[in-house]
Amino acid sequence: MRFRVRKFAHILERSGLALAGAACGVFVAAHVGSSVPLLTTQGFLVLMMLSGALGFYLGIDTPQLPFHPHDEASPEEPKIDTAEFLSAVGTFLATLTAFFAVAIIILREDPHIAWTSLIMLGWIIGVIMQIVAGAIARLRS
């Protein structure tokens, strides 16, 4: 019984993360779509939501490598956990760009297209980093 409750709680947590990622994707899509008329389609919005959901579901809460401080100089173990690093940077980048997109929408700003392109690029790179991190972590466990 305890295993089922833990499993259900974990699935509920991951689903919440996926919903947060989808919401971030909506905000980025709303900002980018309002600045680039070609990207005002429902397909673009759905793509951004799905990429955010997938990235946040896979990339957050990745299983970490065991930490052994006495084996720091061991040549067979990498010094940096690639999945953990990609997950952290990707999550930060994706949420930072979503934060900027929300701020631009709320403050009714009209930034230069270069800033909008940077937000879109940051979102794409961040979500890809999360997805790669999740894939690496799941392949090694």
Rank of each mutant, 00 (worst) to 15 (best):
T95R: 08
Q130E: 12
V46K: 09
S51F: 11
I11C: 04
L50T: 09
I11F: 12
F44Y: 14
D81I: 04
A23P: 01
A137M: 02
A114C: 10
A9E: 06
I131Q: 08
L65H: 07
I113R: 06
L19C: 08
F3A: 02
H31L: 12
G134R: 00
G122V: 00
M48C: 11
A137L: 00
W115I: 09
Q42E: 09
G90P: 05
L65P: 02
R14G: 07
H31K: 10
G52Q: 03
I119V: 15
H68D: 13
Q130W: 07
G59H: 01
V32R: 06
L38K: 11
M129A: 13
S35N: 10
R14T: 13
V127F: 00
D110H: 12
A53V: 03
P63G: 05
G25K: 01
G122Y: 03
L96I: 12
G55Y: 00
I104E: 12
H10V: 15
A114I: 14
F3Q: 05
Q130A: 11
A137F: 02
A30C: 09
S15W: 08
I104F: 12
V132Y: 04
E109N: 13
R138Q: 09
G134D: 02
V32A: 13
I119M: 10
L93H: 02
A133Q: 04
F85R: 13
I119Q: 05
L50Y: 09
A30Q: 14
G134I: 01
H31M: 14
L45F: 07
F85Q: 15
F8H: 09
L50K: 06
A22P: 01
S51V: 11
M1S: 13
R138S: 11
W115H: 08
V5P: 07
P66D: 03
F8P: 03
Q130D: 14
T62V: 11
